[in-house]
Design a protein around this nucleic acid. Structure first.
Length: 644
RNA sequence: GCCCAAAUAGCUCAGAGGUAGAGCACUUCCUUGGUAAGGAAGAGGUCUCGGGUUCAAUUCCCGAUUUGGGCUCCA
């Protein structure tokens, strides 16, 4: 038998017989390693443990502790789930079962409507199949033969046939465990006994191949991990996300509600509106300091303007319309055409550029009924929107300045992990390709100038121009796309925006559409979940609540409340006829950052007893001293460094 | 818009083809208190809406609306 040489990661080389499975080699290294092995890397490519190398090469064993392991485990668990489902619900057709972030899913076409009640039964069957430690065997078939196989009545799988017909490889691989066989590239675990820590999570409809016109399948979501601890940590994370759900906290904190009378629109309550205004005023001050002017334009606008701008042609499926006296109007879905109307008032010179026009403009978009989600996806929302009208040679510096401002703002909220994506031309768009070339190149250059790396998002640009998108990561590691800047050579031309250049000729300005928070509503939702409702003092609509120890001290509490409000802090008195312990409990439940307790001791000394949320009793302070502390806390915002 | 599910008191949720239930919240009274729940009494529901089946429907069936989980779309 011919010998080959197998190099291990530490540089050592083993001799093995050509064509012997890798599992034999791994056994020869150590039975402990073999027991813990899941798959292998052969010359940098993931393979099964059964892989039989014919020539010398490099081997790395993938064990349950390897970073690659969890993906393989999930993929194999998807097969295990499919096996359990087809055994329990005969006639169920298989489609695809990919690994996704934090888990996997499998799409089934079944007469049985899956519900969470089925999960336990399926999990139990999976556990039984895993306990049987059924070998998972790889085999190859010519593709055309595989198509024939899936056309036979005994194992008819029309979705698999469609998949296979779309490929062009000569041969395809199958993985078989017991009576169950699925088309798959692999690699997989060597036997079902390796699959121990899994959980079915939810079921929902999903179109075959994501196409609205194709059949609706049932997608079962599940997850799997290499250890019990990791699975439990993940399930805890899911619970934590539920606990932080901004819809739940928004109701508990009396921030807002949704109403059957206006689906997808927010009814802000006093506290939520206070938060909203804090946020808006903060951004307003930032913009003002960075050379923006603020305007206000109408929400109901003649349809003609939005037809000329291309919105009616490209965006009408998302727009609300109305009419009056035989005139048709749109409820504006974006502010840009209105800002061009502002720009167009009076003749502009190149000396007026860049002109940065900001608006907290309320927009309405007629989102599909099934897409609404709390504050995150609504039909009426307000962007921290602005349009920068500039000359072509100002794009790079304007984009760079915007990126800096955006990073400052995110840092104030404690977000530092920001991902940048560049979305280029979509299939449906306005403007010549030459103009798109220019716009996309300008963004690439601006990124380079700002020292930012970006990922490419092909074909995801707006219909009028390419964009940069800024995604932040919250405390649960979830990503939220918030900020954006979009280069637009098209709208100014379509709506006749011009300025007089230094050559006395007329030129169309370039327009940069940009937002930092995105939508104020959505950003509030993100903040609530990120902070689990414990908003930092500087944006919190509640800052101080004064609790009289008994009703005797109500008057002095009112006096202190007035002083705190004069100092610019939100303050209220809980004057209810309750014991102090009860009012403290309520204050904590309402997540008020500071509770002041005032009784006989304080009434005499002119001090307040301070209780800080999460930290508890801080002791007594003179009012001025504690207000000074507040000023510091508010001024440093989300920054953790000492300099503020 | 599509698939599946849900809708009972302000909130969280039980419930059964035959007069509607709990806890918390709310109101009133007692209590005037020191760092996460003092006590008593009381009020509160067209069981989302519209049809149908039935002697009888909040409960079963059909439709609508809204909400939830996804898909598609997206700030």
């Amino acid at each position: 038998m011919e010998k080959i040489s197998i190099t291990l990661p530490d540089g050592k080389a083993l001799e093995a017989e050509a064509g012997a499975p890798l599992s034999d080699t791994i056994k020869s290294i150590g039975m402990g390693l073999f027991r813990d092995s899941i798959a292998a890397m052969w010359n940098g490519v993931q393979v099964d443990l059964s892989y039989q190398p014919a020539e010398s090469g490099a081997l790395k064993v993938i064990t349950s502790k390897s970073p690659e392991a969890v993906e393989i485990i999930r993929h194999s668990t998807a097969h295990l789930m499919a096996q359990a489902v087809t055994e329990l619900f005969p006639g169920t057709l298989l489609t695809i079962g990919p690994v996704i972030d934090n888990g996997f899913y499998y799409d089934f076409d079944s007469k049985h409507a899956f519900s969470p009640e089925d999960f336990e039964v399926i999990e139990k069957r999976m556990a039984v199949l895993a306990a049987q430690d059924i070998p998972v065997v790889r085999s190859e078939k010519p593709r055309l033969e595989a198509i024939q196989y899936f056309k036979e009545a005994a194992h008819a799988e029309p979705y698999k046939v469609e998949l296979l017909e779309g490929w062009d490889s000569a041969s395809v691989s199958f993985y078989t465990q017991g009576s169950f066989s699925d088309l798959c590239r692999g690699p997989h675990v060597p036997s079902t006994g390796k699959l121990k820590h899994f959980k079915l999570l939810s079921v929902a409809g999903a179109y075959w191949r994501g196409d609205v016109k194709r059949p609706m399948l049932q997608r079962v979501y599940a997850t799997a991990f290499t250890s019990k601890e990791q699975l439990e940590a993940h399930l805890f994370q899911i619970e934590e996300a539920k606990r932080r759900d901004h819809r739940k906290l928004g109701r508990e904190l009396d921030y807002f509600h949704f109403d059957e009378n206006s689906p997808g629109m927010i009814f802000w309550h006093a506290r939520g509106w206070g938060l909203y205004q804090n946020l808006m005023n903060y951004v307003r001050a930032k913009l003002s300091r960075n050379g923006y002017i603020e305007v206000r334009t109408p929400e109901v606008v003649d349809i003609g303007l939005f037809t000329k701008s291309g919105h009616v042609g490209n965006y009408s499926h998302n727009m609300f319309f109305t009419e009056s006296e035989n005139r048709k109007y749109v409820i504006k879905p974006m502010n840009c055409p209105c800002h061009i109307e502002v720009f167009n008032q009076g003749l502009k010179s190149f000396r007026d550029l860049p002109l940065r026009i900001a608006e907290f403009g309320k927009c309405h978009r007629n989102e599909l009924a099934g897409t609404m989600h709390g504050l995150m996806r609504v039909r009426g929302f307000t962007q921290d929107d602005a349009h920068i009208f500039c000359a072509e040679d100002q794009i790079a510096s304007e984009v760079a300045a915007f990126c800096k401002l955006l990073q400052e703002v995110y840092a104030d909220f404690g977000f530092h992990d920001i991902v940048v994506k560049l979305s280029d031309r979509p299939p449906q768009r306005v403007g010549d390709d030459a103009v798109w070339d220019k716009a996309e190149e300008a963004l690439r250059q601006a990124c380079a100038a700002a020292g930012m790396t970006y990922e490419l998002n092909p074909g995801e640009g707006a219909f009028y121009g390419p964009k940069l998108e800024f995604t932040l990561r919250d405390s649960l590691g979830r990503e939220w796309q918030c900020g954006t800047i979009q280069v637009d050579f098209n709208l100014p031309r379509l709506l006749g925006a011009e300025y007089v250049g230094s050559d006395s000729g007329r030129h169309h300005p370039v327009m940069l559409h940009r937002a930092i928070l995105g939508s104020l509503e959505r950003f509030i939702g993100i903040l609530i979940e990120h902070f689990a409702g414990d908003l930092p003092m500087w944006v919190n609509p509640q800052q101080v609540r004064i609790l009289p120890v008994s009703e005797k001290y109500l008057d002095i509490c009112r006096e202190i409340e007035g002083k705190i409000r004069d100092a610019g802090f939100a303050c209220e008195v809980d004057g209810r006829n309750e014991k102090i312990g009860f009012k403290i409990r309520e204050g904590e439940k309402d997540k008020v950052p500071y509770l002041f307790i005032v009784g006989e001791k304080e009434a005499g000394s002119g001090q307040v007893s301070v209780r800080k949320r999460k930290d508890g009793d801080l002791g007594s302070f003179a009012l001025d001293a504690i207000l000074e502390k507040f000023r510091f806390e508010v001024s440093r915002k989300g920054r953790t460094d000492a300099a503020a």
